[in-house]
Design a protein around this nucleic acid. Sequence first.
DNA 1: AGCCGCCATGAAAACGTTTACGTTGCACCC
DNA 2: GGGTGCAACGTAAACGTTTTCATGGCGGCT
Lengths: 360, 360
Amino acid sequence: MATTIKDVAREAKVSVASVSRALNGSGGVTAATERRVREVAARLRYVPHGAARSLITRRTHTIGALLPDLHGEFFSELIRGIDLEARARGLHLLVSSSHNGADDAAVALRAMQGRVDGIVILSSPGVDADFLRANLPEGLPSVLLNSDVQGGSAAVLNIDNVAGTCAMVRHLVGLGHADIAFVSGPKDNFDARQREAGFRAAMAKLAPKAPLRIVAGNFSESSGYLAGRELLAAKPRPQAVFAANDMMAVGCLQAFKEAGLAVPGDIALAGFDDIPIARYVTPPLSTVRVRIAELGKNAMDLLADLMDRPGVSAASVHTLGCDIVVRESCGAHRNGGATARTSKTTKTTKTRPTTHSSPR
Amino acid sequence: MATTIKDVAREAKVSVASVSRALNGSGGVTAATERRVREVAARLRYVPHGAARSLITRRTHTIGALLPDLHGEFFSELIRGIDLEARARGLHLLVSSSHNGADDAAVALRAMQGRVDGIVILSSPGVDADFLRANLPEGLPSVLLNSDVQGGSAAVLNIDNVAGTCAMVRHLVGLGHADIAFVSGPKDNFDARQREAGFRAAMAKLAPKAPLRIVAGNFSESSGYLAGRELLAAKPRPQAVFAANDMMAVGCLQAFKEAGLAVPGDIALAGFDDIPIARYVTPPLSTVRVRIAELGKNAMDLLADLMDRPGVSAASVHTLGCDIVVRESCGAHRNGGATARTSKTTKTTKTRPTTHSSPR
DNA sequence: AGCCGCCATGAAAACGTTTACGTTGCACCC
DNA sequence: GGGTGCAACGTAAACGTTTTCATGGCGGCT
């Protein structure tokens, strides 16, 4: 039986109202009694019952995070970014990861009803505009991550996949690799679609004469390996391969090594994400870095804004820019002698963070 | 203004009590009214207010996870394991990561008071027996992860660092590398201490004549690099280096490569954790795998047990066994031709999961 | 036919807070 | 000296549920 506000009131010889006022610093209580109440509360180890408080306050001081069942760096970094910022604002974080499929997400969403003041949703296959219209409670402030739903009442925050892809293509073309093959990701993934679109656009602009080569992958290492083999068999071998994520690039690398090709000597290679593995493969992988923790922080900031002014349907679209980090796999370090041993010397180029906000 | 149980009651022409009974399936309501209530509830999109419910029920259906500010694989896998199992039991997960230092953890712990039915605490420097005695609420079911506090009212779940270390030492000795140097982790880390202790014990038993070489590290890659350099300068070079975690092993590898040494030809190498990077460095790193998601699942199971029977101070200590996974860096694959290209062929050996439970 | 007991239902209490409102005491001013 | 205003404090309502208890109806048994 935990100690309640009544116990404190009795012990401090005041009413419960005064205890509440003293502890919440809402004023209307003399300094002496406030001190007495605080002391008694500390002695009794009183901590207010969260449920009771949020029942009357209509505030839970908790935000929810709805994530698909993904493991690895992205997940942890995102949570970390959100949690760090949430904690700075005195908010708690209720996570619901590890659901796959729309039905699963729907029950998770319903269950969060009334337990959170706002919600961050990382979109996944099945979680689209229709899903949200059907399942997202009306007044609940929400931020959509990596989503292409436009209208709605939620703010949307996306990685600038297009700019990132474009920057990498520009870099590769600048190195003389105009004939770039792209390994795409799963069609039902938002980032994958954007990256492919970005690649098409970049090639059209920067290397219009090069053939457009796109081979299908699904973000897995093995699909990258297969794609690598397929590309090796292509008649004129591409000068460079740009994979839509790092794991597929690693798969490609394996295929190239098996075929006895030197990277980047015979063929250049680049990925997307900058997962930790990228810097440890040989040669270290050039890639596009997305600052995931920052993505989480920004999402939390956006959500806090929405929570501050209720009722205002501040639907907006924001974008987080990404850097390209140049290691050895793309051939930029080829000149100047030894290829190895300089894995620490990377050059990063930032795409301008197009935080283009379009409230409607 | 969300719809409440009263709205449903009015619309279905029954009392709120009947609505509650119908929706909770507590019986005592005719099939016809139950159907009518359910239908109205669905139409009105009624979802019970969590705070109100847990105010009366004394159940939040939420468990808390208190974690230090660690990023990367361990964090995400642990959360994933916990969440997966929690979700299977209809529980929510309130995480509070990103605190460093005991004070920070204390406020996080207080804040969880009354918001959770149980709590999983991953111990970190500062979070020790005294801390828990002072800050852990009396009746709250709790599971301590990687902790050496013994008494208390909490269940303790540990990785079997000793068995894992021992298994790796046995493997190395079996390959003929009796002269093993150990790179230790930070002194204030529980796993690090256990692994070092395990190494000492294993060497005393399996290679009593070999010199005991231990060089200090702090789990970081750079500290591993430094340790590697130090070991290279040692008069008789050790036959093998066993790092207390994979990141340090990677640092060692870098040092060895720089010095022109072949791994495992000139010196064998092993790590601990089996982080994803381990399989992608060259040569792939032999290591001790800890199944982190399973650790999280087991913690959740333990916690659920504690929550089921309240009052029973079922303090106990459990251990999760770990596998050793043999790749190329330790030299087991040296025979049989090419060193490369077989990075997929690994052999894993399981230490018996010593789930030794000692209720007191 | 009358009574007993069960079952569906409703009324109301309870959970632990916050807060609107009322009450008191006191200083101040006319 | 009495009215006025303000500050401190207490009382009670309210939040949305669950659950206990009472009540009525009805079927079955004697």
